[in-house]
Design a protein around this nucleic acid. Structure first.
Lengths: 244, 244
DNA sequence: CTATTTATGCCATTTAATGGCACATTAGAT
DNA sequence: ATCTAATGTGCCATTAAATGGCATAAATAG
């Protein structure tokens, strides 16, 4: 891996500082594992932090490690729109899964959190929230045959959904038929643990529903889509879902 | 000029934000001159700031320009200790469950959120976090026989755990034997969806592990307990768990 | 209509960032 | 003394991100 974007780099640095602050002493090998980077890169990052004035002390040799002295201020919490979506979605899913311990106040927590963000961000995120729906858990016989899609594929789908990009998918239906089509991911729906896309399908020029574990591959194609009115999809696929 | 270092880039962004805050309204041509960059680069920078959640508004056409609205970032979060625990736990569970869509940044989000709470709260909550552990998902034959405990019972257990209160439980072991005993819930462990308590057992005066779905009833009894060193429990029950 | 202003895609070019490796220094154990 | 563990830095090949220029698009005011 070569290079990271400014965004990733910024986040990595914040995570590093957060880790340093969360424990009194660290071995650099543990830090690098936490961050998923090479030892060399970590050492560079630490050298830069020192140059920037962070009071990092270190000890070589057996039992050695590093420490961030004193208290160091942290900026106001800032989450991107996508991060807010992930946060709210996670809380909504946990609420729907109803684990017995320590999950009984999630609805209130979700509301409090969301209210703490600025209005502009709430508006932007709400437009995405309306397109994400959670239903009831999938039945056991469905789950037993379920295999989660691989990570890069899922990320591609998520990006197409969030950015409203058209997506070309290779799809295998339940009957085993393979098709390639361009779709607009207008909504995503979760019957835990299975995700569905309610899409406008360019192949059939009509609404269709796709299970993401049946998408064999996908790539974002040229072109963005506009959201269609919910009426296009209602009555067919979404009567029993609740948006997050 | 091509590329800027992370350091220069960070400084440039801070200067941009500072400029935006120093005047109510800017033409982008003026901004770019101030920063010494091209119009294209500035537009990119502004697009990234918007994506990152900064409330930037803009107006096209004659007399147009951009504005940074007064408020960004998250208001001071007002959550109780228990709510913070629930929040962090939920994010940790979602992270471990690895749902394919929109859950790939939860580790970073969790860390950012936690850093946003006051230091005193972080200390208090950290002591609880160290006692909550997540392992791998339970096997299917375990899940198929699992019935979640009822709500009041779960709440009672959660309270005993959080408040470090002694708990009298009626327990039915796997072999069907019923016992009543007083326990100290030192740790709770999750193999999704099944919760376990690693406890100090007053009946046997030794460490024991209890599945909460096998707890038939429970009530908090007089007396609080002190946490015991992890060594009392290590090697028997907790070698493969990771605290949240 | 023209002029102004924000906004974005595309492309060629450049260079900062990364990981791997070797070597240096320090501390602790034997 | 040697060996191992741990922080620290130089060097290099590779590569992906960043930049500026240009064209085009959308919106507003006169």
């Amino acid at each position: 891996m070569i290079n990271t974007s400014f965004e990733q780099r910024t986040e990595r640095r914040n995570r590093l500082i957060g880790l340093l602050r969360s424990e009194t002493y660290w071995k650099t090998s543990d830090l690098r594992e936490q961050l998923g980077i090479s030892q060399r890169t970590l050492m560079r990052e630490l050298a830069e932090l020192k140059r920037a004035g962070y009071p990092i002390e270190s000890e070589r040799g057996r039992g050695g490690g590093i420490r961030l002295n004193g208290r160091w201020g942290v900026d106001r919490l800032q989450l991107s729109h996508h991060e807010v979506v992930e946060l709210i979605l996670s809380l909504a899913i946990m609420e729907s899964l109803q684990s017995p311990l320590l999950t009984s106040n999630l609805k209130a927590i979700k509301q409090k959190l969301f209210q703490a963000f600025p209005q502009e961000q709430r508006s932007a995120v709400s437009n995405i929230r309306k397109r994400i729906m959670i239903g009831s858990n999938a039945g056991e016989n469905i789950v037993s045959r379920y295999i989660a899609p691989e990570h890069a594929l899922s990320e591609c789908i998520a990006e197409a959904f969030l950015e409203q990009s058209c997506l070309e998918i290779d799809y295998q239906s339940e009957s085993g038929e393979h098709t390639t089509r361009v779709i607009e991911a207008q909504y995503i729906l979760l019957n835990w643990p299975i995700w569905y896309i309610t899409a406008w399908d360019h192949l059939r020029e009509s609404p269709r529903m796709f299970r993401i574990d049946r998408i064999k591959s996908a790539r974002i194609v040229n072109g963005y889509f506009q959201l269609k009115p919910i009426e296009v999809f209602i009555g067919i696929y979404t009567p029993y879902y609740k948006s997050i």
